[in-house]
């Protein structure tokens, strides 16, 4: 089973829009960003399987077997 990592804005540079990763039981957002070479302070917003929250807390949430993550650097507008 693979999980899907959606990347946005400058996180796409050198990584692409979507990265598929082999699922391992208990894997968290922290494992994902470690393998992508992204650090927590670079992240402004994070969604794990449709749920968002404070970045540090979301990085500890286990991802579902066929789940996904969406990772955003600081972006804004209006």
């Amino acid at each position: 089973m693979a999980i899907k990592i959606k990347l946005f804005a400058n996180f796409r540079e050198g990584r692409g829009k979507i990265v598929e990763m082999e699922y391992t039981p208990g894997m968290t957002g922290q494992d994902v960003i470690d393998s992508l070479g992204i650090t927590a302070p670079e992240i402004a917003a994070l969604i794990v399987d449709g749920v968002d929250g404070k970045v540090d807390a979301m990085l500890t949430v286990p991802i579902k077997e066929d789940g996904y993550m969406a990772i955003f650097p600081p972006v804004a507008g209006g």
């Binding site: 600081p74 972006v75 209006g78």
Partner: peptide, 25 residues
């Protein structure tokens, strides 16, 4: 030095919101 005003906005404009707002449903 701010990630938004020195990064996201100059590079992508306010249009950068499309994906993040959409992903939050």
């Amino acid at each position: 030095e701010n990630g938004v005003t020195g990064g996201g906005l100059p590079t992508y404009g306010t249009a950068v919101l499309v994906n993040i707002i959409n992903e939050h449903g």
